[in-house]
Structure formats: C-alpha cells, structure tokens
Design a protein around this nucleic acid. Structure first.
Ligand SMILES: [Zn+2]
Ligand SMILES: [Zn+2]
Ligand SMILES: [Zn+2]
Ligand SMILES: [Zn+2]
Lengths: 138, 138
DNA sequence: CTAATGTCTCTAGCGACTAGAGCTTCAAGA
DNA sequence: TCTTGAAGCTCTAGTCGCTAGAGACATTAG
C-alpha cells in the first residue's frame, strides 16, 4: 500500500492531480488509514500510469474514462477503443494543420521586424492589423 | 455608430466575446444610447479587427493588450512587439514539435487496432498501458 | 402600435488542473 | 516514548478565453 506522495513519484503525476482524478471519477476511492490518509494498491497505481500515459498523448478525461471502463471488461469488443484513438489522431492532425499555418505566418511576421524601429511603421503591428498580409487562412 | 451585433458581423467576433473584451480591458468602453446599448465608432471596430486577427494567430489576451498599448503610442520603439511575436512563434513551434511526436505515436496506435478484436488483447489498450511501446518521449 | 429581434446585466460553466489556507497525521531520529 | 518536520487532509478559489442561459429592457420594421 502506497501513500499518495509515493504514488505521485512513481507515476509522475502531482499529488493534487491524483486527488482530482478521484474526484472526477477516473479512479475509484482508495482505502484509507485510520487517520484518513489515502493508501493505494498496485492495481490503482497501474491505472494511474495508464491515465498519465493517455493524458500525455492528449486524450481527454472523458475518453480515458471510457477506455478504463473497457479495460475493466476485457472481453468486450475493442471497437470503441479504436474509435477513440482514431478521433484523437484526427484531433491532433487538425491541430497540426492549424499550427503549421500559424507557424508560417508568425515566422514571416517575426522576420519582418528587427525591433529597432518604431511602433507606427512596425511590420508586426501592420501584419496584425490586416490579414491581407497573410498567405493563408487561419 | 454601430450596434454590437453589427460589429460582430463585421469582425467575425461573437457578441458576448466583444463584451468580454471590454470587460477584461482590451477595448475601452464604447458610447451608449439613451437606452444603454453600446454604440461603436470606426476606430473601435478596427481595434476589434486587430484583436480578432491576433487571437486567430494565437496571441494571448495579455500580449494583445501590450500590443494595443503600443499601437496607441506610435512613436515608441517596436522592440516589445518584436519580442511578443518572437515568443508566440516559439510557443507555436514548441506545440508543433509536441504534436508531431503525438501524431507519430497515435497513428501507430490507431493503425495497430482494427476494432474487430477484444479489449483484453487490443493494441490500443496495450499501448496506453505501457509507454515502452512508444518510439519517442512526449 | 405591435411584434420580433436585439441588447442589457449577471451568474455559472467548460477542461484540466493549480494554489493556498488551516488543520491533522505519519514516520524517523533522539 | 517523545518530538518534530514532512506529508496528508478538505475546501475554496483561481487559471484562460470564452460560452450559455435567465430575465428584463430597447430598438426597429411593418
Ligand atoms: Zn517592428
Ligand atoms: Zn491573417
Ligand atoms: Zn483493438
Ligand atoms: Zn508513450
């Protein structure tokens, strides 16, 4: 049985984050000592590792909850898991596309100003004021 | 003089968003009709366009506030504008790098499961449970 | 003049935490 | 065994940039 701090060190999560996951129902309530402190078993530490990894990959809490539900019913079809992973992939790809466009505009904008001029004639200011300077939609 | 709804249509912002920008001090309080409705002048519409464009490029509100301050003092040095643009560019690049790594992992994960199996032996589940499957840090 | 649409203020909610106050419990050394 | 300092507890509120809704008032077209 591990204290919350020990589990935090093992999983790379922060202590308040672990409590938060419990609060939102991602993790079942752990046992408690007589003095009301949380004590986690190996299973729960493993589950927190799962959550951590899924969060690191950007999955939202709600999706992780569905995946955990699935993990608790190992003989169910994994169709939902595939769907969730696919959705997350698409989400990331959309964000990538948007950020790629932004990177192009921002590097142009940043390149256009050395910071040695005056606000009135600054390329950064002009670019922000008028989207017509831009080479793409965003 | 334009009503808030008209300005919303002109700028592409939503009505509550414009009120929000006023609330957080990005936009000075506009004139009001006798009946207490907001009426915007051309300058304010332009400024809202500036804000919209900067937000579309991902600049945080605080940075935009600093840029607007600069726009109101056209003879000041644009060093701060250059700095803000540079920081935003770096921020976007960091996010791009992270998302690129995530895309690699997620496309591997999604490819590994057709959704026709069972949760217990699902590649998605296994990949989330163990970072050792991953080809990079994230 | 009426009816429909627009606008007003205020509060609360989103996602995923994070920070802090004020208190209690645990564990290790003397 | 006692003490002390770290760790844990609950609860509230704050972060960011909006968005939604309630209930009341203003404007405008027909
Ligand atoms: Zn400049
Ligand atoms: Zn643009
Ligand atoms: Zn599968
Ligand atoms: Zn991984």
């Amino acid at each position: 049985m591990f204290s919350i701090g020990t589990v935090a060190r093992q999983t790379g999560l922060k202590v308040p984050t672990i409590r938060y996951y419990e609060q939102v129902g991602l993790l079942g309530a752990p046992e408690r000592t007589e003095g009301n402190q949380r004590r986690y078993g190996k299973d729960q530490v493993e589950r927190l590792g799962f959550i951590k990894h899924a969060r690191d990959l950007g999955f939202p809490i709600e999706a992780i909850a569905a995946l955990i539900d699935l993990a608790e019913h190992p003989d169910r079809s994994c169709a939902q898991a595939a769907e969730i992973a696919q959705r997350q992939l698409e989400d990331v790809r959309e964000k990538l596309e948007r950020l790629t466009r932004l990177e192009a505009e921002l590097s142009r904008i940043a390149k256009g100003c050395s910071g040695t001029g005056v606000a009135d004639t600054c390329y950064v200011m002009a670019s922000l004021a008028d989207h017509a300077h831009c080479g793409s939609e965003h």
